[in-house]
Structure formats: structure tokens, C-alpha cells
Design a protein around this nucleic acid. Structure first.
Lengths: 217, 217
DNA sequence: GTCTAAGTTGAGGGCCTCATCAACTTAAGG
DNA sequence: CCTTAAGTTGATGAGGCCCTCAACTTAGAC
């Protein structure tokens, strides 16, 4: 079997996970691994030894966080007696998460294929979202032409607003989101100029964002 | 007086401006200056000699482009008999510009204080936007609580969607924007959770985006 | 206390971008 | 043509990040 880790190794793993959680939250998933190492009081080499690279580290840190927060959002949404309120609560809580945790913003709006556990969690999350949408659709509250494939627009938009205003008007995203939500009510619906993305287009777009570390060639 | 430039110098300036226009459009305002130099068939040093740095180059290239396109949008908007349609056309044309020209996306949503001409143009643009908004407000078509300071939300959001989907669903931003616009009609208005940004907060947020070249410390 | 495999270290090679400047080239006036 | 100031070049140093690996340290078994 995998021989048990030495005590110092286990302790370093803990430290790195802890440092990574904080650094990811504060600076996003692209924070230099060297900053994480330093924060953990460990050499860069150790991070690579223990995790093998950024994606594995992401996969060690993010899934639990995302899953917990998404679950919370789902529960609160379904507890809401009014289906529209449920939908609004769901979206708002996830956007709030994005606004307070840059890494969550990355994780919700992008895909990192080699972070397998995270990908799994996020895909499951789409199914959960479907439940909330269905309920709001059936109540006639959510416009009929809004689909799960449109959800990333909300996350991308809110993340963009939150990042832009983080230092100057940290609650601006709430106003921007409220404006957008008003456009999603069935009563606000006007014909749309284009069909939704297909599921594959959506995933491809999110994956491209994950790969595009920064400006490419 | 400033002694006239030598012919080769003038020619190089032209080439660099041309190369920069294309490179900015394709890759955004953060494209490496060396790529621009290469594209212009010129050494990196020449770009620095002639322009002195990225901001000056931006200022040499972007203002004319932005001004022309904004003017076009204003004209088309005011030509629209219905004030709501005018507003929608205005916003849509600027978002289309963002979607087809990454540099325009940067310029409309950010501020680069040391690119003075560009800053001036963009500030003037806000005044023009006010005209369009006023007309739509007075017609009772645009929700009363939507202000000029809310406009950046539209640009940031649309730019985020356009960047995300550029390679996979290049028209997705139209759908996302249409959803958002439906929330801006007076008839869709529900109370908002927060006041608009102040003008200063808006400018500060845009400036921060311009300075934040990429992930900061 | 000794020993050794497990673990850590941090310098270093690779790659990228910025910005500079001494040495070279060339336009253009005389 | 020759001259020379204007202009260009591209190698270079500085800074940042990634990832690796030979040398060193240490936990923990005996």
C-alpha cells in the first residue's frame, strides 16, 4: 500500500492547503505557486513534490469549499416558499460567493479539466441549478426562454463587476445583479436575438477561460 | 520648432500605429509591445523611441477609433424614433464594438490616466450617453433608477461574456445583453438593493482595472 | 545511538516581458 | 560625394513565474 506519510510531510500538506485556500481566495486561482509556498513557510519545491502542480492543488482545495457553498445556496433556495425568490436567492448567494472569494469566481465560471474532482462538483452543480430553474419556470415566474446554459452569463457578469469594484464599491455587484434579475422575470420577457449556447458550447467557453491563463499569443 | 521627422521615422511611426491597431484589436491593450514591433517590422527599441511606452501608444491609436465608433452609435441612437430603441441601439453598438475589438473593450471599461487623449474622449462619451439616457427616461421607457453610473455594468458584463465566448459562440453576448436590457425597461423595474456608484467610485473602479495589468500581489 | 529512506531545499534553467543604451546605419543638406 | 545628426538596432539587465533536481536534512525504525 501507499506507505504512510512522514509526520513533517503531512504537516506541510496541511500548511500548503491552508495557505492555498487563503491565497486563492484573495488573489484568484492564478496566484503564483511561490506565494503560496512562502505563505505556507515551505519551499516551492515542496508544493510540487506534494501536489505536482497547480491543477492538483486546486483540486485539493476548491471542491470542498464549492460544494459546501453551493449546497447552502440550494438549500436556502428550496426553503424559499416563492419559486422566484428561490431562484433569486440561489443566484445571489453564488454571486456573493464570487464577490468574496476570487477563487470561487474562477471555479464557477471556468473549467479546469485536469482538476477532476472540481470539474465533477461543478457539473453536478449544473444539475442542481436545473432544479431551481424548473421550479421557477413551472411557477411561471422565470421567463421561459431562460435556460441553464444562460447561467454562466450571470456568473461571468457578476464576477466582472465584483472584480472591477472590489476595492471601491464592494457591493456594486448586488445592484448590477438586481438589474439583470429584473430582466429574467417572465413578465419582463421580450424576444431574444439568439438561441442559448448549446451545452457543449458552454463547457467549451468555460474550459477556454480556464486554459487561457492570461493573454494568449 | 520641433525639427521635422526624417522620412524613415515617419514611415516607422505609421507602421507601428498600424500594427498596434491590429494587435490591440486582436489581443487587447496588454499585448506585448514586442509583438507590435515585430508586426511592424521594426525593433522593440524603435517603439520606445517613437512613443515612449505603452500608454502613449494607446493614446496614439485608440482615441480616433473610439471616437468614431461612439459617434456612430450616438447618431444611430438619436436617429431611432423610439427613445427605448435608441437606448438599446446605443448600448448594443458599443457592446458589439467590444466584442469585435478587444482593445475597445478595455478602453470602454477602464481608464488609463496617462493616456490623456483617450481619457478625455471617454469622459466626453459619458456626457453623450447621458443624452441618450435622458431621452429614454423622459419617454418613461428606461427605468428611472438606472443612471449613467450604471452603464459600466453593461460594458463590463458584455465584455466578460464576449471574451469568454469569443472562440466558441461569438454571438452569445447578444443574448446576454438582451436579457439584461429587458431588466432596464421601466416596466420591469423592481426596487434595487443598493444605490448607484458615485461618479468618483465609477472612475476609481475603471482606473483600478486599467492599472491592474494582471493579477496583482 | 545509527542508519536510511522519505522529505525538503533553493539554486538554476527555461521562458516571457519590459525598458535601456552603446554601437551601427541612413536620410538628406551642402 | 561627404558629413553628421537623426534614427534604428538588438543585445542586455532586471524582474517574474514555472518547474526540476542534486544535495542536504530529518523522521522514525531498529
Amino acid at each position: 500500500m501507499t506507505s504512510p506519510l512522514r509526520r513533517d510531510a503531512r504537516r506541510n500538506i496541511e500548511r500548503v492547503v491552508e495557505a492555498a485556500t487563503e491565497a486563492f481566495r484573495e488573489h484568484g486561482l492564478e496566484v503564483p505557486l511561490e506565494h503560496i509556498a512562502q505563505r505556507a513557510g515551505v519551499s516551492p519545491g515542496t508544493v510540487y513534490n506534494r501536489f505536482g502542480g497547480r491543477d492538483a492543488l486546486i483540486d485539493a482545495v476548491m471542491p470542498a469549499l464549492i460544494e459546501a457553498r453551493v449546497r447552502e445556496a440550494i438549500d436556502r433556495a428550496l426553503a424559499e416558499p416563492d419559486p422566484w425568490d428561490g431562484f433569486a436567492v440561489y443566484v445571489t448567494m453564488l454571486c456573493e460567493l464570487q464577490a468574496t472569494d476570487l477563487a470561487a469566481g474562477d471555479a464557477l465560471g471556468r473549467r479546469y479539466p485536469s482538476a477532476e474532482r472540481l470539474t465533477e462538483i461543478c457539473n453536478a452543480q449544473i444539475g442542481d441549478a436545473q432544479t431551481i430553474l424548473d421550479r421557477a419556470h413551472q411557477a411561471g415566474a422565470l421567463r421561459a426562454d431562460f435556460t441553464t446554459e444562460d447561467m454562466p452569463y450571470l456568473f461571468w457578469s457578476s464576477a466582472a463587476v465584483a472584480r472591477a469594484t472590489a476595492d471601491t464599491a464592494p457591493d456594486a455587484w448586488r445592484r448590477a445583479l438586481a438589474l439583470t434579475l429584473d430582466g429574467l422575470r417572465a413578465s419582463a420577457a421580450h424576444p431574444l436575438p439568439a438561441p442559448p449556447m448549446t451545452h457543449d458550447e458552454m463547457l467549451a467557453a468555460m474550459t477556454a477561460l480556464g486554459e487561457r491563463r492570461q493573454g494568449r499569443s
